[in-house]
Computed example of a mutant assay.
Amino acid sequence: MRTKNVPASSPDPDNTARTFAVAGHLVSAPKAAPGLHLVATPIGNLGDITLRALETLAGVDIVACEDTRITRRLIERFSITATLKQYHEHNAEQARPKILEALARGSSIALVSDAGTPLISDPGFKLVREVSAAGFPVIALPGPSSVLAALSVAALPTDRFFFEGFLPSKQNARRTRIAELARIDATLVMFESGARVQECLHDLASVMGERDAAICREMTKLHEEVRRATVSELAGISDALETRGEFVLVIGPPAADAGLMNDAALDDLLRTSLARGSVKDAVAHAVEVSGRPRREIYARALELSKDGDDG
């Protein structure tokens, strides 16, 4: 890369140079190679952008992004001129063929999410699947990730972790999923919205109460906050939590002597399963995730089923 000691606002005289600004200097960027470039962008602090990401955003023909307003703020911050096209869950089916057509013409395209690494909790994997199946290059530019940022500061084991994304929004489905996650021998990482974080913590506490955990809010932003305690303790203070912003929850793995699923969690699991299907299916699912004996679970399922019929 070559730098020019001119103000970042200096015009490009022939309107053909590809440049970006760093510390008041314009940096020349080569035209990006044809293909789909997966560019990680900051999750809060714009200073976390990499030089390679800036060079690529300046050098591609098209930047495919979730929200053009958010991406425009990023590229304008670094004086990049780029053609922005929307690619998000609501227009993905229509946008993917157009992206493939552009790649077939030899275009270079950057895919970015609103924040963090593309494909993490967004529809980008479908695009990558079709682009790679069509034989076009897919190039990864690693960088910011709220998952890894939260995991690194949680003070919990990092040798194995399981990323869940968002838990179900409805309580019964959420409790069922938590019961399933409880048996995974790894640190758990999940997203949650401020509107649901309190009720989510209470549901987590009912199954994973004594596990060590961390709540990470607004990672890398001005009001970043990390709280570490057991899940039960965090649930106990959840009413006092600041709920504005974005949350990542990190929960440590089960202890070696954690034992079997407790009665309350088993009942929640069975009730949810019975509402969706037969006693046989509910029992089979509960045996798989709870570790408790089939005969015991079957007897409890019959009781709950009978209670439901009586009601």
Results as ranks from 00 to 15, higher is better:
residue 241 L to C: 09
residue 169 S to T: 13
residue 215 I to R: 01
residue 171 Q to F: 00
residue 222 L to H: 13
residue 217 R to E: 13
residue 211 R to C: 06
residue 171 Q to L: 07
residue 241 L to A: 08
residue 188 L to A: 04
residue 173 A to R: 10
residue 204 L to M: 15
residue 237 I to T: 14
residue 224 E to I: 05
residue 226 V to M: 08
residue 241 L to I: 05
residue 196 R to K: 15
residue 185 D to A: 08
residue 181 L to D: 05
residue 183 R to L: 09
residue 226 V to Y: 10
residue 227 R to A: 10
residue 170 K to M: 01
residue 223 H to R: 11
residue 234 L to S: 09
residue 216 C to S: 02
residue 219 M to N: 02
residue 210 E to P: 00
residue 222 L to W: 09
residue 205 A to I: 04
residue 244 R to N: 06
residue 172 N to R: 14
residue 228 R to L: 08
residue 232 S to H: 07
residue 226 V to T: 15
residue 242 E to K: 15
residue 235 A to Q: 02
residue 236 G to F: 02
residue 203 D to K: 03
residue 189 V to L: 10
residue 199 E to R: 13
residue 209 G to T: 02
residue 212 D to R: 15
residue 175 R to T: 04
residue 200 C to D: 07
residue 202 H to E: 10
residue 174 R to Y: 04
residue 202 H to G: 06
residue 226 V to N: 10
residue 212 D to F: 08
residue 229 A to H: 07
residue 171 Q to S: 14
residue 209 G to H: 04
residue 204 L to I: 12
residue 216 C to K: 05
residue 205 A to R: 02
residue 219 M to Y: 08
residue 235 A to Y: 01
residue 213 A to D: 09
residue 199 E to T: 14
residue 192 E to H: 09
residue 238 S to H: 04
residue 193 S to F: 07
residue 210 E to G: 09
residue 182 A to W: 01
residue 218 E to R: 05
residue 203 D to H: 11
residue 202 H to I: 10
residue 213 A to R: 09
residue 230 T to Q: 03
residue 212 D to L: 15
residue 212 D to K: 15
residue 183 R to F: 06
residue 197 V to T: 05
residue 236 G to H: 04
residue 169 S to V: 11
residue 224 E to V: 08
residue 191 F to L: 08
residue 225 E to R: 07
residue 214 A to C: 14
residue 241 L to G: 11
residue 227 R to E: 12
residue 198 Q to D: 06
residue 231 V to D: 00
residue 214 A to K: 09
residue 214 A to D: 10
residue 226 V to C: 12
residue 234 L to G: 11
residue 241 L to D: 10
residue 185 D to V: 01
residue 196 R to S: 12
residue 195 A to M: 14
residue 236 G to W: 03
residue 207 V to P: 00
residue 169 S to A: 14
residue 199 E to Y: 06
residue 177 R to F: 11
residue 235 A to P: 03
residue 230 T to A: 03
residue 242 E to M: 05
residue 187 T to S: 13
residue 225 E to L: 12
residue 194 G to H: 06
residue 190 M to V: 01
residue 240 A to N: 13
residue 178 I to G: 10
residue 210 E to M: 04
residue 190 M to I: 03
residue 208 M to I: 03
residue 204 L to V: 12
residue 225 E to N: 12
residue 202 H to A: 14
